[in-house]
């Protein structure tokens, strides 16, 4: 295409209220695409393997995580198994951790847990879905380890000094899930009802669940 043949006039000016349709491929995007094509060409993976994996990841969301937490709140034996071996315990619920292992860390009256991955964006994707953008941001990844209490405050979570803040950097083979404390005023609630108040951010440990 040598001339602009998409419209009736050339586009050396902006139309108010429209965004130019620019879709430049970045360097790393291009590298990833080249790698993908090579792997398919060499028969290491098939295009369908890739598609199925993407489909699986896109089908995951924090609802599964909420069910795990609600069951731990209502079933003490399950809670013990979950804290002992998270990977095995979630398998009971038909959930997989894929190639990683799950460590569940429990919030108590004395301890608050918070998850970060400083090296990249490791996250329990198979039980929470894809991580939010802020979790992958350089700002969160660096500040969560240096000044966790300030970061928590920005999420609206202010904790007294009497409570220990434990930051978990998921830098290797473990993935982490925070088991929050069951909020007051929810005694006797069914697991289904409890699951609805367990948010994604509560399971990353940046907020506390609210009844």
């Amino acid at each position: 295409m040598t001339t602009d043949d998409r419209g009736t006039h050339s586009h050396d000016h902006d139309h108010p209220g429209t965004t130019p349709d620019v879709n430049e491929t970045g360097y790393y995007e291009l590298m990833a695409e080249a790698m993908k094509e090579l792997l398919i060409e060499k028969g290491v993976v098939s295009a369908d393997d890739l598609r199925r994996n993407l489909e699986f990841l896109d089908s995951r969301d924090p609802v599964d995580g909420g069910k795990i937490i609600a069951r731990a709140w209502t079933d003490p034996d399950f809670k013990s198994r979950l804290l002992e071996d998270g990977t095995k315990a979630v398998e009971e619920m038909g959930l997989t951790m894929g190639d990683a292992e799950l460590v569940v860390v429990e919030n108590t009256d004395d301890v608050h847990n918070m998850i970060v991955c400083t090296l990249c964006s490791c996250y329990p994707r198979t039980i929470l879905g894809l991580p939010p953008d802020w979790y992958k941001s350089k700002s969160y990844r660096s500040r969560a380890v240096v000044e966790p209490r300030s970061v928590l405050k920005e999420f609206g979570t202010e904790l007294p000094d009497s409570k220990t803040v434990r930051v978990h950097d998921s830098n290797a083979d473990m993935r982490y899930l925070v088991l929050p404390q069951q909020p007051e005023g929810t005694d006797g609630w069914s697991a289904d009802r409890l699951a609805e108040i367990v948010t994604r951010d509560a399971m990353v440990g940046v907020v506390l669940p609210q009844a």
């Binding site: 209490r149 434990r166 930051v167 950097d169 998921s170």
Partner: peptide, 22 residues
């Protein structure tokens, strides 16, 4: 201990950082 990691750490001495090391 966070106090061992950072000078002038903002929180109490009991705060920790856990991570995985080979």
């Amino acid at each position: 201990a966070q106090n061992d990691l950072w000078e002038n750490y903002e929180g109490p001495a009991s705060d920790t950082l856990d991570l995985e090391i080979y």
